[in-house]
Simulated assay, not measured.
Amino acid sequence: MKPFTAADTAAAIVSLLILTGAAWIAIYGPETPIPVHFNAAGQADRYGSRYEVAATLAGLALLNVLAAWMTGRQAESVVDPVRRKGLRRGQWLSIGIIGAVAAFIAWASLGPAAASGASHPGVAMAFTAFILLITGAVLGRVTPNPFIGVKTPWAYKSRLAWDRSNRLAGRLMFWLGAVGLIASPFIPQPAGLISLIVGVLIAAAWSVFESWRVWRADPDRQPF
């Protein structure tokens, strides 16, 4: 039986907090329609019920438990301590990202935007940049897993391709996040948020290409 680790405890606590918030929203949330989606300018373009928000949060709680459990189980099954440590980093990273996304969804739907129908797009840019910054700081040290990282077929067939493509993605995301976080209070919106998203897409495409390039040159690669 897999031992219960600190990361498992953190996943359980975060999921319990998310579920508690979902239950509170379902019971005590506004009975009137609340914003559930915003466009790039920060204007609410779709409204839903409190039950929709609660169901979304409950789904995130379930995803958090599933991702943490599967990654933790994979970590315990490997003999290599370096790879096990990398999987644990991925486990902690998934917990942090899902918890942050759940908190942001609750804030966006029930915070100031619930009354005004608009959310300052700079907030969305700052949140996205913060997630990129944290993800980038850890991503390059995460070992192969099914949830976090540049998960291309070539990266799974070559450990060198996994390491290099994820290190590249980590560096790109870190600096995108750092610049975006600093610029979010000043840059005109929604141009700033759109630019950040375009930067992420370019970083993703570059990292995918890097995984193929390294796999192709790796003499120890596994064939398809």
Results as ranks from 00 to 15, higher is better:
Leu201Asp: 12
Lys157Phe: 07
Val138Asn: 07
Ile148Met: 14
Leu193Ser: 14
Leu139Gln: 08
Trp162Phe: 14
Gln189Asp: 12
Lys157Asn: 05
Ala114Glu: 05
Phe147Lys: 00
Pro185Tyr: 10
Val123Asn: 10
Pro146Gly: 13
Ser116Ile: 08
Gly117Thr: 13
Tyr156Val: 02
Phe186Glu: 06
Val198Ser: 03
Ala205Pro: 04
Val150Cys: 06
Gly177Ala: 06
Pro112Trp: 09
Gly149Thr: 09
Tyr156Met: 10
Pro185Cys: 10
Leu181Gln: 00
Trp154Gly: 01
Ser207His: 10
Arg141Lys: 05
Leu168Met: 15
Ala115Glu: 13
Ala129Cys: 06
Ile197Ala: 15
Pro144Ser: 11
Ala191Thr: 03
Asn145Cys: 10
Leu132Ala: 14
Ala114Lys: 00
Gly170Asp: 14
Thr152Asp: 04
Ala129Arg: 03
Ala169Val: 11
Lys151Arg: 15
Thr143Gly: 02
Ala178Arg: 02
Ala155Tyr: 06
Val179Ala: 15
Ser165Val: 13
Asp163Arg: 13
Ser116Asn: 03
Leu168Ser: 12
Ala204Thr: 15
Val138Gln: 07
Leu172Arg: 04
Leu201Lys: 02
Thr152Gln: 09
Leu201Ser: 07
Gly177Tyr: 06
Ile197Cys: 12
Val138Arg: 03
Gly117Ala: 12
Ala113Leu: 11
Thr143Lys: 08
Val198Asn: 02
Ala155Asn: 01
Val142Met: 04
Asn166Cys: 10
His120Ser: 15
Arg167Tyr: 06
Arg164Ala: 09
Leu133His: 00
Thr128His: 01
Gly177His: 07
Ser158Leu: 04
Ile131Val: 15
Arg167Trp: 08
Ala169Leu: 10
Arg164Gly: 05
Leu201Phe: 15
Gly177Gln: 05
Pro185Gly: 11
Ala129His: 07
Pro121Arg: 00
Asp163Val: 14
Trp162Gln: 05
Phe174Pro: 01
